[in-house]
Design a protein around this nucleic acid. Structure first.
Length: 872
RNA sequence: GGAGGCAUAGCUCAGCUGGUUAGAGCGCACGGUUCACAUCCGUGAGGUCGCGGGUUCGAGUCCCUCUGUCUCCACCA
């Protein structure tokens, strides 16, 4: 039999194992349609080369569920995340080009895309190769697939569907514009931050010279675009002003005073200047009152040529200049400091400029209805449930979605304009001809928002709009795993797209996980430089350790902190498993053949088998409920405590004895090891595969094995409970020996006073091997001077040690045990003495309490006897 | 302004539908290595489960108030 390497070193086998899975196409449906009915698609990290723990977490959790489901023989498809991070990607590419002295314009759209792919291949591809080690599902080629191949057809199809149904429209709307990225961004991409600014109080004179209207603004430069001032219709103070006009300072334009309920009478003077082109609320007021929209800024937020005095100044310079002029003209009444929230671009941090421009929108309210319903009636379930609130909050107050982006990295909008006659056509054709005048048309240069194509992911990746077998078989998918930060960006839009285009939900469950934070609990970010590169962690500790750490010790939806210590603990666990497996294997004979559990199981065998059986049951149940952290910690406990610290130690005497004792132990050791490896495989795929292949001489792959389940015939709980008594006795002996500093190397005869003579004598070998018993004797009414006493609820064990025992110390220890026993009894008795408890509690519970009380009383009696014998 | 999370051992966190005397890892203390593993083994110390009420035979768990803290959404010129 092959042997495992002396030291656990993941770098020696993880890549090899991964290549093996890929070669055998273990992740592809065609390998074995019954067993592996899923296809998996994963996004590449973006071109920046920076990877986030978040990716790692996503992929790990998905991969765990996938492996479990696949081993269990269930058909399913999981959807990993996608994010081609359009804005950031484009910014990086542009930056890289700039270093080479190139601009977007030099390359043209086609050249730009070519260059972008070259970049992706060079950097993202390499990184993704490594990232695959976390989730078997990584495949960066899939981005090419989404962007260029099959999915772009789906994108066009959906765009046209929506357009024809009237869900997509093109229009002048006020949108968030980033003057640095030079693109529109959706309101979800705007982050607000508090900034200190000023409140400038101004006065606008009435045209008829009858005085002034007083108002305040935080953005005086937008005054150039004012087309009205507004008051609340209920405001008595301004009843007479409504309908009059005022003269716009500096510009001299005559603008009306309108009444609109949007104005808060109690805020400031109750008068607001209305700049429809540069404020979303003003825009709405403007629409209600048919006010002209005057754009005063260029794309990069400079004042337009329409205002020669300020033309070319950026918005902050213009603000200064305008304030100066207002002051000079006597329009500035006073200035006061003011803290307000300012929207910034979430990619580059620049203050966004609300701007009216011609953009494409999706009308969301109708589309949202079936999507809300699908979650409301439980067809789609969020895990944990509370995240449906976030979803409903967003969906029920949904706004139209601006989908055009002024970028090249993305799907170009399939709309064409005729420069000649002004005709607009939406078509799949790549070069359209004007249906009216027959002249060639020009395609809209804008791209679609990343999330527009991402929303189609569940079906576009399955070949839709073709009715492929994959689509038929896999849709709707089972579970989506993602972080709570993109529920609104992505999850909600996938549901909408699924309901509209497939008339069916895209997935049944949405497993939401938290964010990975740094050791101080801060969000990992580039500017803080506190991001941890998963690849470095893998290099140091191995992919299994990182995966296990990510899956353990946290619960769905809650953020987790990343610390080195946690990964180290997981690595140590892997090391433990490695060494335990190595030990088992090095004790197997060369001609060992695994035959399964022997017929006559010893008590300790039944104990471990029974425990394993329960573990298999628990792990399956936990995974079914998405309790990955609970499942993994149960595996940890079983493997480390039950198997390594107890069972292996218990078998050591048998392994030394040889013969039937040894050969039966071998079978049980291997049986449990195989089961453990399978249960652990989803969590630590590489080490389990490596051990498995050595253990089975390369005859099979664990990835293709069946996942263990509970077997009623393996339930030996009666024997297991008896054996627990032996374990309790061993622990009790250890405790008294340790507490009095008598090492196991000091052998001693042990005298048992117990009703379970048969049980303990049958298991005497363990006392000899594990707690230094030279011999066991059974009897009644022992009277020893200078003996250690170990007490359990069913046995009293004396270990005469003569001079090694310190009477005072031992008495002190016994006194402690007595106090504990009395305390135990008191607590249980109190419960049982409560009439309400006996009347209303379940009978089984009461029975359990009674049994516990009896045991506690027995134990106390034994402790008291021991104390008495010392004092005799 | 609206919504939600978190608060449990020195630290990081588990604790699922209420039912043992609340757990783990790390850290700490003491002891142990020829015979798988010091990336180890054994033993121990350490918690009035944020405060105050309520429901219940029974509350870390359910309800309410408060305090601290974090997040999301909206945003008043």
């Amino acid at each position: 039999m092959k042997e495992l390497a002396k030291n656990y070193d993941p770098s020696t086998f993880e890549d090899r194992i991964y290549q093996q899975w890929m070669r055998k196409r273990c992740f592809h449906a065609e390998t074995d349609p019954k067993k592996i009915p899923y296809t998996i698609v994963i996004p590449p990290p973006n071109v920046t080369g920076q990877l986030y723990m978040g990716h790692a977490l996503d992929e790990t959790l998905q991969d765990i569920l996938i492996r479990w489901k696949r081993m269990s023989g269930f058909s399913t498809l999981w959807l990993p995340g996608t994010d081609h991070a359009a804005i950031a990607t484009e910014a990086k590419i542009v930056e890289a080009m700039r270093k080479e002295g190139l601009t977007k314009a030099d390359l043209g759209r086609e050249g730009f895309m070519k260059r972008a792919w070259a970049w992706k291949e060079q950097y993202a591809g390499r990184i993704d190769q490594q990232l695959m080690k976390l989730g078997s599902s990584c495949d960066w080629e899939r981005e090419r697939f989404t962007m260029d191949e099959g999915c772009s057809e789906a994108v066009k199809e959906v765009f046209i569907n929506y357009y024809e149904k009237g869900y997509i429209y093109r229009g002048e709307r006020i949108i968030n514009w980033c003057p640095k990225c030079l693109t529109s961004i959706s309101n979800a991409e705007v982050t607000y931050e508090e900034q200190e600014g000023c409140f400038w109080h101004l006065r606008y004179p009435f045209s008829d010279g009858s005085g002034y209207m007083f108002l305040a603004t935080t953005r005086p430069e937008t005054l150039l675009g004012d087309t009205a001032i507004a008051v609340n219709p209920k405001d008595e103070r301004y009843k007479n002003a409504v309908g009059k006009t005022v003269i716009l300072p500096l510009v001299g334009r005559e603008i009306p005073v309108v009444a609109d309920s949007y104005v808060d009478m109690d805020f400031g003077t109750g008068v607001v200047k209305i700049t429809p082109a540069h404020d979303p609320n003003d825009f709405m007021v403007g629409q209600r009152h048919n006010l002209p929209v005057l754009n005063v800024m260029t794309d990069d937020a400079k004042i337009t040529e329409d205002y020669p005095k300020y033309a070319g100044m950026d918005r902050y310079e213009a603000r200064k200049a305008i304030l100066e002029d207002l002051k000079e003209g006597g329009f500035l009444v006073k200035t006061e400091p003011h803290v307000h929230n300012v929207g910034t671009c979430y990619r580059c941090g620049t203050t966004v400029e609300p701007r009216v421009s011609l953009q494409w929108f999706v009308k969301m309210d109708e589309l949202a209805k079936p999507a809300i319903e699908a979650v409301r009636d439980g067809r789609i379930k969020f895990v944990p449930e509370r995240f449906d609130k976030l979803y409903f909050n967003w969906m029920e107050d949904i706004r139209d979605w601006c989908i055009s982006r002024q970028l090249w990295w993305g799907h170009q909008i399939p709309a064409f304009y005729c420069d000649d006659c002004g005709e607009l056509t939406v078509t799949k054709e790549s070069s359209a001809v004007c249906p009216k005048c027959g002249k060639p048309m020009r395609q809209d240069p804008d791209s679609l928002d990343t999330w527009f194509s991402s929303a189609l992911w569940p079906f576009s990746t399955l070949g839709w709009p073709e009715k492929t077998d994959d689509l038929q078989y896999f849709y709707p998918t089972d579970t989506l795993v993602t972080g709570y930060d993109i529920i609104t960006f992505w999850v909600s839009r996938m549901i909408v797209a699924g309901m509209e285009n497939m008339d069916e939900i895209p997935f049944k469950h949405v497993l939401i996980h938290g964010l990975v934070r740094d050791a101080q609990g801060r969000k990992m970010s580039k500017s803080l430089g506190n991001g941890i590169d998963p690849l470095e962690v893998i290099d140091t500790y191995g992919a299994d350790a990182l995966r296990f750490m990510l899956a353990t010790g946290n619960s769905p939806g809650n953020d987790m902190r990343f610390t080195d210590d946690k990964v180290k603990a997981a690595r140590n666990f892997a090391n433990k498993l490695w060494n335990a497996s190595r030990f088992v294997m090095m004790n197997l004979p060369n001609d060992f053949r695994f035959k399964g559990l022997p017929e006559n199981l010893r008590m300790e065998d039944q104990w471990v088998v029974s425990k394993f059986n329960q573990l298999a049951k628990d792990v399956n149940e936990n995974l079914e409920h998405f309790e990955l952290g609970v499942a993994s910690s149960k595996l940890y406990d079983f493997i480390w405590d039950v198997y390594c610290d107890w069972y292996i130690e218990l078998t050591k005497p048998r392994m030394r004895a040889g013969g039937e004792a040894k050969s039966s132990a071998e079978q049980v050791l291997v049986w449990v090891l195989r089961g453990m490896l399978k249960l652990l495989h989803p969590f630590m795929p590489f080490i389990t595969e490596e051990i498995w292949q050595v253990l089975t001489d390369g005859e099979s792959m664990i990835i293709l094995e069946e996942f263990p389940t509970y077997q009623a015939e393996l339930d030996f709980s009666a024997a297991a409970n008896d054996f627990e008594k032996v374990i309790a006795a061993i622990k009790a002996v250890r405790m008294s020996r340790t507490e009095l500093n008598v090492p196991n190397s000091v052998k001693a005869k042990m005298f048992f006073e117990t009703l379970e003579v048969e049980l303990f004598s049958a298991n005497s070998i363990f006392f000899e091997n594990m707690v230094g018993a030279s011999e066991l004797e059974f009897g009644q009414d022992y009277k020893f001077k200078n003996a250690l006493t170990a007490v359990t609820d069913c046995a009293r064990i004396f270990i005469p040690m003569e001079e090694l025992v310190d009477k005072d110390k031992e008495l002190a220890r016994l006194a402690k045990e007595e106090a504990k026993a009395r305390n135990d009894i008191e607590i249980i008795q109190k419960k049982l003495n409560n009439p309400g408890f006996c009347e209303k509690a379940p009978a089984q519970l009461i029975q359990n309490e009674r049994e516990k009380l009896a045991k506690a009383k027995e134990k106390l009696a034994k402790v008291l006897e021991s104390i008495a014998s010392w004092n005799a």
